[in-house]
Design a protein around this nucleic acid. Structure first.
Lengths: 229, 229
DNA sequence: TAGGCAATAATTGTATACAATACTAGGCGG
DNA sequence: CCGCCTAGTATTGTATACAATTATTGCCTA
């Protein structure tokens, strides 16, 4: 985890993964432009590969590509924000239910490790990292449920949620959701599908209810700076 | 609708749309290879643009791209087949419910036109076209519900459903679902959300229950032939 | 004859060169 | 002083050339 940039020939997936991480952790903020030249220089590959990565990210909703203008970190509208959480509300509760019925002790250990890292990130004053880990927690549940298709959709939704939070979160500092995650792990450990489903529903409503109309304060972000983990 | 191929400079989206159509209508069958050279020749553009189109389709699950080997029409496993319909079961009923509460007379007219065209396609012995129209019907309901995010997911799921049907459908000829679509339109016309939700649930279960384990009979498909509408 | 190896052909992956478009700055006229 | 137009610059879009990989064919040997 030392160097962000691989010595030679990063693949399109690598680039997309690292850029996605930067977006998830809010090192690249909504509206930030990603110039192909700049990215290709940073990763030491040609624009051809960079364009593949950028298009893949655009497909996931992380970027918006405007013809002849370039790729920008997406700025979900308020409408999209609502839609994202409505979709999550449809998918995640029943997925949590299914997960509860398949959870193994190894899964529990993994989830608890996840929560622990999340807390450590908060303690170290890395809210971006904590947010990313929080999102991964939700993906992990889909993985436990053994639903690859839904997990794939959820990956997109969690990504967009990160953008939504960057734009519309009321209180920047307080991530009061760790308790919800703990409770979920308990339900999974007890293989209590009904409880997991309800907890997830409530958890999503919690987050959703904390969204706000406040307008985003534009600020330029340096790409190289953002990639410097 | 005369010529499939635009005279000059088809865009990547055009190519993806036409190829997707061919897949939806089973003119390109699961497993068929799409060589970049061939596609670029057919559409009169360079491989650069073709690759964009192919990658976009791969992202939707219509194609599988194997490194250094090429792009093939996807062959969903039985597991994926189940997952696709499980995901649809989560998304579509509540979407139909929402749609019922927003349906306008214009929407009803559009849906009825849709069903009519589907019947005509069947009468003209174009089951592929009928299947595509049937899929579009479901997407139209998501559009009426005014849920763009879910509509986007559903687009992928309907696409994959087409592949699943190509591989795992029990009886090739019988598309006995037109009644279900009629009933859905009735529920929408009456703005009866509950009925629409239940009908959609039953409709999806109907389709799902007709899936089969039968293995697919490999057959080569000419690209140029398939694109000849 | 069957199996494996080698050379060749075919195809995809990547980089680069060029074209088209959008942005920026400076000058000109009002 | 402001606005518009124009020329130049910067950036993205597309095509092409080359490299790397895979598939195929024919030959040789057991």
């Amino acid at each position: 985890m030392a160097s962000t940039i691989k010595a030679k020939s990063a693949t399109a997936d690598d680039i997309a993964a690292q850029l996605s991480d930067a977006v998830h952790q809010h090192r690249l903020k909504p509206g930030a432009k990603l110039r192909e030249d700049e990215v290709s220089e940073v990763f030491g590959v040609s624009r051809t590969v960079v364009r593949q990565a950028l298009r893949a990210m655009a497909f996931e909703g992380l970027l918006t590509i405007e013809k002849n203008r370039g790729a920008f970190v997406a700025k979900p509208t308020l409408r999209e924000a609502h839609e994202v959480f409505q979709a999550r509300a449809l998918l995640e509760p029943s997925t949590a239910h299914a997960a509860a019925e398949r959870t193994t002790p190894a899964d529990i250990a993994l989830l608890e490790q996840h929560i622990k890292e999340e807390h450590e990130a908060l303690d170290r004053d890395q809210p971006g990292l904590a947010l990313k880990l929080s999102g991964d927690f939700h993906l992990e549940i889909a993985r436990i449920a053994d639903q690859q298709t839904i997990e794939q959709f959820l990956k997109q939704l969690v990504s967009r949620s990160s953008l939504v939070i960057a734009l519309y979160w009321k209180r920047r500092n307080a991530l009061c959701e760790s308790n919800a995650h703990h409770a979920l792990v308990d339900a999974l450990r007890n293989q209590d599908g009904r409880a997991a489903e309800d907890l997830m529903k409530g958890h999503l409503l919690d987050i959703y209810s904390q969204l706000d109309l406040r307008e985003y304060d534009e600020g330029s972000t340096s790409l190289k700076e953002a990639l410097r983990k």
